[in-house]
Simulated assay, not measured.
Amino acid sequence: MTSAFDPTDFPEPTLVPVNGVELEVFEAGRHNAGRPVVLCHGWPEHAFSWRYQVPALVAAGFHVIVPNQRGYGGSSRPAEVTAYDLEHLSGDLVALLDHYGYEDATFIGHDWGAIVVWGLTLLHPDRVNKLVNLSVPYQERGAKPWVEFIEDVLGSDFYYVHFNRHPGVADAVFDENTSRFLRNMYRKNEPPRAPQPGMALIDLARAEAPLGEPLMSDDELAVFVAAFESTGFTGGINWYRNSDRNWHRLADVEPIIRQPALMIYGDRDVVPRLENLSHFVPNVEVVTLDCGHWIQQEKPEETNRAILKWLESQDSATQDR
């Protein structure tokens, strides 16, 4: 079992002005300037979700940049729902590279952070040299907008659809039950969001007894709880509320990602794989770990080994050319 991480060991944050907002950024390994890697968290997460990866990447020679993306932690939380679309989220990351003086970087994303990294690579391919994504594969852009498609498949009560059709309802329940909700979300080896009717996520927030084996220590969980008690959940949920806007934005974008990519799945994760991933990401390598959805927190050593082995292989390939 992985030892609990001491939250005081995480880098101190700084506020960085980018793209009309401020991002709370945790940075380490500046002495490794020239090898930037940007870690992008998902929902309902925080930069702290990468706590096990930061020291490993620094030791491997990388300048590690970990933002709380807009809507999270100490970063800006614009009021307008459209301020959380892919255009803004990817623009924040491009501006973050500009702030540090980098033309491009390696981006690593988990959950919604993976969606943003896929989208960033499509919209700004010259700013991404390599990418690693965990849990959520490339989203194929089908004939129907994503929310409508998901509603057809999983129904109107599925959380992804509910967030869009009933704005503010889930937000309020999560805000009222922050600690309980996060404790029940962050479980080992178990699907965090079972695709079933009845608004399973709201059920998680209201469940009296803990559900499943905890993913992290009480001190680690307290970092997430304190952050969301301060910010609420609406900023992060607004990312979901731009799904169809993002679908329209990508209509005329070349859908093929040509950069080297690593896709890491958890074999107990309920997020479905994309079986034809290599059609859209021809230079992809796929790794599967024995875990649930919270891959880099549940299996940090295995995640670090997979990422670092792949990055080393990419460096070797570059040197051989």
Rank of each mutant, 00 (worst) to 15 (best):
L123C: 10
H124K: 10
P125V: 06
D126L: 11
L131T: 08
V132E: 04
L134G: 03
L134C: 10
S135T: 10
E140G: 07
R141W: 11
G142Q: 14
G142C: 10
G142F: 10
A143R: 03
K144H: 14
P145T: 08
W146V: 11
V147F: 07
V147L: 07
V147M: 06
E148L: 08
I150K: 05
E151D: 15
D152K: 00
V153F: 15
G155R: 05
G155T: 07
S156A: 14
F158K: 00
F158D: 02
Y159C: 01
Y159I: 06
H162M: 13
H166K: 10
V169T: 09
V173N: 05
T178A: 07
S179L: 04
S179Y: 00
F181P: 03
F181S: 06
F181E: 01
R183T: 00
M185E: 00
Y186D: 01
Y186E: 02
R187V: 13
N189C: 07
E190M: 12
P192H: 05
R193L: 15
A194S: 13
A194K: 12
A194E: 13
P195R: 07
P197F: 15
A200P: 14
I202A: 12
I202W: 05
I202D: 09
D203E: 15
D203L: 12
L204K: 10
A205H: 09
A205P: 09
A207V: 10
A209C: 09
A209N: 10
L211V: 15
P214Q: 00
M216Q: 01
S217H: 03
S217P: 02
S217L: 03
D218P: 03
E220T: 01
L221G: 00
V223Y: 00
V223N: 03
V223H: 00
F224Q: 02
F224M: 02
